[in-house]
Amino acid sequence: MIRIENLHKSYPMGKDALHVLKGINLHIKEGEFVSIMGSSGSGKSTLLNIVGLLDVHDEGEYYLNDQLIKDMNEKKAALLRNKFLGFVFQSFNLISYKTALENVALPLYYKGMSRKERLIVAMEYLDKVGLKAWANHLPNELSGGQKQRVAIARALVTKPKVVLADEPTGALDSTTSDSVMQLLKDINNEGMTVFVITHEEEVAEQTKRIVRLKDGLIISDKYTKASKAV
């Protein structure tokens, strides 16, 4: 599903360049539940942004769904994101003036689905994350956990190939963290590839494969107990 070979990325910092990713090789198959661990500055967010087509890499090759990602312009990237990827962010990133239902329906709007249809589909997914009753509430009327569940519903609504989650529990307390992680596990159990970035061991342990990053390089790549349990 995701194949990365010798990936490099550096950010220009004045005259010098900050070399963030120094040759990453990673292969994620369909249906995997992978977490990327690393301290801040290890390059894990950069990796996710490149995988999520939110940023471009400098060197190396990246295949998404067997398609080589190269010379992306914003328009092509937008189409691919809409088709293959679902995002869950640490800070939820819901649009504040839209209701939970409208937020979930938004990716379908960019897919070109009719309003009637997309509201039905969006409601289905809200129901799936247990927030059907909150459909017409604005984000600021929801708790953090509820917001993240809306964001997950939004990430899933286009039936993407991969769900990318950047510190999905970073802004949540432990109880709501657990429920969000449970939701991600459920999604994975249904066959969806899930790619999580975190710096919390407890979160990483709930995934099936942990990739550890340090100073722009992968230092370990192991399957967890959770994966063996299934």
Binding site: G52, L54, K75, L79, R81, N93, I95, P107, Y110, T158
Partner: peptide, 16 residues
Amino acid sequence: TKEFGIRKALGAKPSS
């Protein structure tokens, strides 16, 4: 700007 970023992450083309 942030809203536009969200929209783009969800698949909005710059032209839209």
